[in-house]
């Protein structure tokens, strides 16, 4: 049961759920950031499964740096979100159309 493919399927499902969440949720920026965390979790699980499978610890080093960057990204993203909320009074993704993108 605990094969490499089992872990890869789990990671792919996690990644897919995160992606679906980013597409479905179109009103809340915080849930969007949480979906990014889900995507990164799937990728990290892949790295660790391959690190175990290939008997090589370099994959875990990758995960270490991904965790660092993700923590920094979450902190800056949430700070930006709070500033945005204070300026606009909403964090609705649909209302962020000032640049007409």
């Amino acid at each position: 049961m605990m094969t490499l493919s089992a872990f890869l399927i789990l990671a792919a499902l996690l990644f897919g759920i995160g992606l679906v969440g980013m597409i479905l949720n179109r009103h809340n920026l915080v849930v969007l950031l949480m979906c990014i965390e889900l995507l990164l979790l799937g990728v990290n699980t892949n790295f660790i499964a391959f690190s175990h499978y290939l008997n090589n610890i370099d994959g875990q080093i990758f995960v270490f740096f991904i965790l660092t960057v993700a923590a920094a990204e979450a902190a800056i993203g949430l700070a930006l979100l709070v500033v945005l909320y204070q300026h606009r009074g909403t964090i609705d993704i649909h209302k962020m159309d000032t640049l007409k993108g």
Partner: peptide, 18 residues
């Protein structure tokens, strides 16, 4: 899922190196 499940059915064992 198609790419994954076609191969790599080797069970994971306790590795010594890591």
């Amino acid at each position: 899922l198609k790419a994954i499940s076609l191969q790599h059915y080797t069970p994971l064992i306790n590795n010594a190196a890591i």
